[in-house]
Design a protein around this nucleic acid. Structure first.
Length: 341
DNA sequence: CTTGGTGCTCCTCCATACCT
DNA sequence: AGGTATGGAGGAGCACCAAG
């Protein structure tokens, strides 16, 4: 759900002794020319960056999802309740009033399992509105992104990212994410500050955007059964359908008609992944507002990091239910119960 | 007659560009 | 960053046409 946040607190809204806070160690850059110590200061804690500007305004930037996992990863599910827990934790540890933390950026995303290789799903996410999804590869992550003026849509192969970091996983994980560049759309939903992220109605609205954006995304279904379709579809249509540029050249009316026709054929002669993924996104969002969440994926660590000890006491349950993971319900330990305190 | 393909208008919502 | 004017995208509904 809620992943990256960027929030700014005005100097009068932060405690005077923030630099003495026991969880934060601020460092200041030193000018080697003048020997002058800059006023700006930076501290890091559990993957969050706390920066003070020269007017002593505080900006917090980072993933609150990773924060709940000691700053290590955002592979697991992160529920609405977790969001509240983390924000309360931040508020308490740093003595901050969440309603004073004005949001400047927000990222929301869901991890879901897919029945084919996640990379195949990502590769076939083609166009949203008039914007193609373009390939990106940074820090072990491969994703495609559609750039809009107010937001970015991102489709990730999350299982690849897992494996590159040394985790064993036998499920294919697809992550669908929206990153806001401007606050306008979120403001329309009543989301202005960190405190608004604790409001279930507002977050529900924000999460539903993920559903709408997926509905509006052109997806070529690689499970199309070629033996069931006409010769014309086999020889011509499938090449057109897989080509984002071909879609973008069409008139809007023509695009709609051809999209409808393609979807009809996918409904009849494929596993209809677009619909399947839509349903999974809907289910995951719904579940994230309950305490008990259907688990996306069991996780085993192959390196020495105590990754699975995050779920200490639950390991046997996880490994025993490898086959039916989607049916596996579990309660995540509270932040304070986890080993990263 | 039905069915499927096409194309039109109206209307709403949203993206963009540009302002402060 | 926030705010807004403008135009475009696309969905709904309807009509037309050809083929069976």
């Amino acid at each position: 759900m809620v992943d990256l946040i960027k929030a700014k607190f005005n100097s009068q809204d932060i405690p005077n002794d923030i630099e003495e806070n026991k969880y934060l160690e601020f460092t200041r850059p030193l000018s080697t020319k003048t020997g002058e110590i800059k006023k700006e200061a930076i501290a890091k804690y559990k993957g969050l960056t706390f920066s003070l500007d020269r007017y002593e305004n505080l900006t917090i930037i980072g993933s609150i999802h990773k924060y709940s996992n000691c700053g290590r990863h955002n592979f697991n599910d992160f529920t609405f309740k977790d969001t509240i827990e983390v924000l309360k934790d931040i508020s308490k540890k740093f003595n901050l009033d969440l309603s004073k933390g004005k949001l400047q950026n927000l990222e929301l995303g869901v991890n879901i399992t897919v029945p084919i290789k996640a990379t195949k799903v990502v590769d076939n996410v083609l166009v949203h509105l008039a914007q193609k999804f373009k390939d990106y590869s940074i820090r072990g992550a491969e994703y495609r992104e559609s750039t809009h003026s107010r937001y970015y849509l991102k489709a990730y192969n999350k299982s690849l990212q897992y494996r590159r970091k040394g985790y064993t996983i036998n499920k294919e994980i697809f992550r669908w994410e929206i990153k806001y560049r401007k606050m306008y759309s979120l403001n329309q939903m009543g989301i202005y500050t960190l405190a608004d992220l604790c409001d279930v109605k507002k977050i529900h609205l924000a999460c539903n955007v993920l559903i709408d954006k997926w509905k509006g995304t052109l997806f070529y279904d690689p499970t199309l059964r070629l033996n069931e379709v006409s010769n014309y579809v086999r020889t011509t249509n499938i090449h057109q359908w897989q080509n984002p540029n071909w879609w973008l050249k069409l008139s809007k009316q023509n695009r709609k008609n051809l999209k409808d026709r393609m979807h009809k054929i996918f409904r009849e002669s494929s596993d209809n992944l677009h619909d399947l993924i839509l349903k999974k996104i809907e289910e995951k969002i719904k579940a994230s507002f309950h305490n008990r969440v259907p688990m996306t994926h069991p996780i085993k660590s192959t390196n020495s990091l105590p990754f699975n000890t995050l779920y200490i006491g639950l390991n046997s349950q996880l490994t025993n239910t490898f086959a039916g993971v989607n049916a596996c319900l579990y309660r995540k330990p509270k932040i304070s119960e986890r080993l990263c305190a």
